[in-house]
Design a protein around this nucleic acid. Sequence first.
RNA 1: GCCGAGGUGGCGAAACGGCAGACGCGGCGGACUUAAAAUCCGCUGCCCGCAAGGGCGUGUGGGUUCAAAUCCCACCCUCGGCACCA
Length: 721
Amino acid sequence: MDNITRMRKQLRSMGPIYDWQRETICCEPEYYRWNQWLFLQFYRAGLAYRTRAPVVWCPSCQTVLANEQVVDGACERCDTPVTRREMEQWFLRITRYADELLDFSGLVDWPEKILVMQRNWIGRSAGAEVHFDISHLGLAERTLPVFTTRLDTIYGVTFMVLAPEHPLVPKLTTPERRREVEAYVEEARRKSDIERLSTEREKTGVWLGSYCVNPLNGEKVPIFTADYAVAWYATGAVMGVPAHDQRDFEFAHKFGLPVRVVIAPPGWSGGELSEAYVGDGSMVNSGPFNGVPNREGMARLADYIQQQGAGKSALVYRMRDWLISRQRYWGTPIPMVYCDACGVVPVRDQDLPVLLPPDAEFKPTGESPLKYHQGFLQTTCPQCGRPARRESDTMDTFFDSSWYFLRYTSPREQARPWDPSMVQKRLPVDKYTGGAEHAVMHLLYARFFTKALRDMGLVFYSEPFLRLFNQGVVIAAGAKMSKSRGNVVTPDPYVEHLGADVVRCYLMFVGPWDRGGEWSDTGINGIARWLNRVWDLMLRGAPVPTTSGPRDGAADAEATRTLGRRVHQTLRRVYQDLDKFKFNTAIAALMELSNTLQDAWEQGRVTAEAWNDAIEKFLLMMAPLAPHLAEELWERTGRPYSIHTLLYPKWDDALTAEEQITLVVQVNGRVRDRLQVPAGIGEEEAKRVALESANVRRHLDNKQVAQVIYVAGRLVNVVTG
RNA sequence: GCCGAGGUGGCGAAACGGCAGACGCGGCGGACUUAAAAUCCGCUGCCCGCAAGGGCGUGUGGGUUCAAAUCCCACCCUCGGCACCA
């Protein structure tokens, strides 16, 4: 709660416009009861389930994590290398939506980068599942399924690899190999994901002592376990084709396994390969498929194994179901009850929320602190009324953020999570901003929630955020500048010394908003100086006519028109820039206008009326960028509170048009002269004045003029023969 | 390795087929001051030239075009993402 108060204060100090009426606090029962309600909806829809699986474990946080929350083999939150554990946990069936999540057609404008990241993450891969026969071993399992995208290489299989965690590993291990295999599996389990990830590592593995049979050619191939096969992907088993897969090639060399070429490389004379050949070619050593181009062979083999009952075409996804249980105290209790008689029973809707007890004890046990809180744990079964235990794990906080925008539409709703009519009115979100680091977490989860809720009839659209804009990161002293991460440099002291408007404008001005930039102390002074000049300029009052210089009515009228033109040009530029999130150029445009105003004031040739109009429009343009200063100046120049309730002024295209233009004159594409000409100059006239230019004549040097290009309102290019 | 974004003055950056370097920082010179800070004015891509003017310049090499930072091809480098995914 202290955190929230501090955060609220920091946010407010920067002067943004938030509707604080809609603030929702995820850790309060008013919010998390709806997490629980939604969880039960997912459960009823078959989208939430509990199962035992090798899950990612963070030894420092003492909790399991979702795959999405592992960055480079380390915990997203604390950077500790993660390990794996076999545990019974709650999952959301996001994989059911894998294909729909790959369809981005419902989005209006998302950065390509994010789409690519999501696409990679989901990792759809088309291939075939082939069943290698193990019936001779007399196990319950009669076949060993493997997934391959290279069915065309199946005649080249010379070994089989199972991931160390593969459930068949113990069963396929012969007694004389057992000791060695168990040692290897144990070692693999202890290794962090980081160690196992390294591509540089030499291949390791152990033969299990047993064989399986290739259903295509009836050959016996030895079964190994090796950690280059990963348990959670596809079937956790790899068919080893050393001739046509570099990893298998390396493994075969290490263990002296045969390398059999089944796709002939171009110009191949039957000799040994120095590395795996992964390209296309004709099939060889492949029984009835010899001579068939491998692409075609792949399709025919798929039909063939299907007919033989030895396999089928298969789609495999890299993405796993979303593991949402956490062994943390903070988080929403998962509203489930374990009853010895009835099994796993959901808490009844009317009994929600399941409250988080305020007095749990923290122990580094690797289990939820709630597990030791008897008052919380002991309950009765909603079905039979007998004593039962509550689920003690809590939900991933990404559950909260997957639907908060729905709650924003009706935050005080008591009887339901949101008011559908308000959702109808406000959502989906037109424009959403956030960092790219959320690509495969929040942004993917929120898309999944939306689609799942749509299928439950709870919302009526398919994408939560139509447009997405990634803001960049501001780097200060080598570290990401942030409000939440407790960093070396925070903007707070600058807000205190120079004011929020200076910090805001500086952050906008450093560079393109989506790229972030480097914090610079001298740079921010530039903005502070500019805003000081603006302050002074705005409060100066209309210029008094100067006594020096040309003083006639025509000159004054022209100066006044020019000022108006600059104002309207700036209105257009700033509007368009803000619309495109190009804050840096919007501020540059305002700087130019303030320079223009400064000059106009010094020359003292514009009317008071034009001056006041310019000041007013300037302040209105400044309002979204420097809201505090704009409001203060608005009041000090005698205007009624509040500037922030007014509309951005409309520009008049007619008033933005220049009277004079600079006509660029080129000879053979090189600029040789610039002429001031009336804006409405015609083609003939423009070419004529261009050819008359002394500079042009000198460069033509009596050469034949072959062509004269005219670009209206811009340039004339004289081309010689 | 694969995918994405990007390479422009001393620096942050504009321009996205038509005047490269807007705007700001820094630097240099000047005004004010006993002095400094602050402020204000002027200059500031590089090279030649007293000047007028000229040459060279947007990572590298080619190409398209009257005209390329901008479009096309190849390559180099930086940053971000994915990566033993079968």
